[in-house]
Amino acid sequence: MPLSAIKTVATAQNGVGAFILPCKRITLSYCDWAGSSRGMNAYLKNQLGAFAKRNPQIEIQVYKKAKHHPVMTADYLNGHRKSINVKNMTPEGVKEKIELLRNASPEEDKRVPNKPVTSINESVRGIWSPFHGAKIKI
C-alpha cells in the first residue's frame, strides 16, 4: 500500500457545536439541629427550587447529615469533584457558593502558565518565513 492512514479520535470542542455544562451533579447536606446549618436550611427551603428550575441539566441531591456542618459537593463531567463547607453562612452566601460550583471549571486550580496561547486552527495569514518574500539586503 503506497498510502496508509493514521488512526486518531476527533477531539471535543465544547461550545463549538453543542455546549454541555461541566457540572453534572450538586449534593447538598444539612443538619436540622445545629446552628451552623441555619443559612443552608433557609436556602434549601426558599431558593433551591428556583436554582433547580433554572438548571435542569444538573442533578441535585439533598440529604440530612445530622451533627455535621453543611457541605455542598459538585461532580463534574470529567470525574473531578469540588466541595465547599458552608457552615454559618447566610442564605445569600450559600447561593453565591452554589453558583460558584455551577460555573466552575472542572480542572483543579493552577497557575496560568506564562506561555503564548496556541490554537489548533490553521492561521489565516500563514506563518512568516525568512526564506520567502522580498530579500532584504543590509
Partner: peptide, 20 residues
C-alpha cells in the same frame, strides 16, 4: 449530529501516511 459529532475537531491533513 452536527452539534455533537461533526463539531468535534479533526485535522484530516495529519492523517496521511505516505510511503513513497
Amino acid at each position: 449530529f452536527k452539534a455533537h459529532f461533526l463539531s468535534r475537531h479533526l485535522d484530516i491533513s495529519t492523517m496521511f501516511n505516505f510511503r513513497t
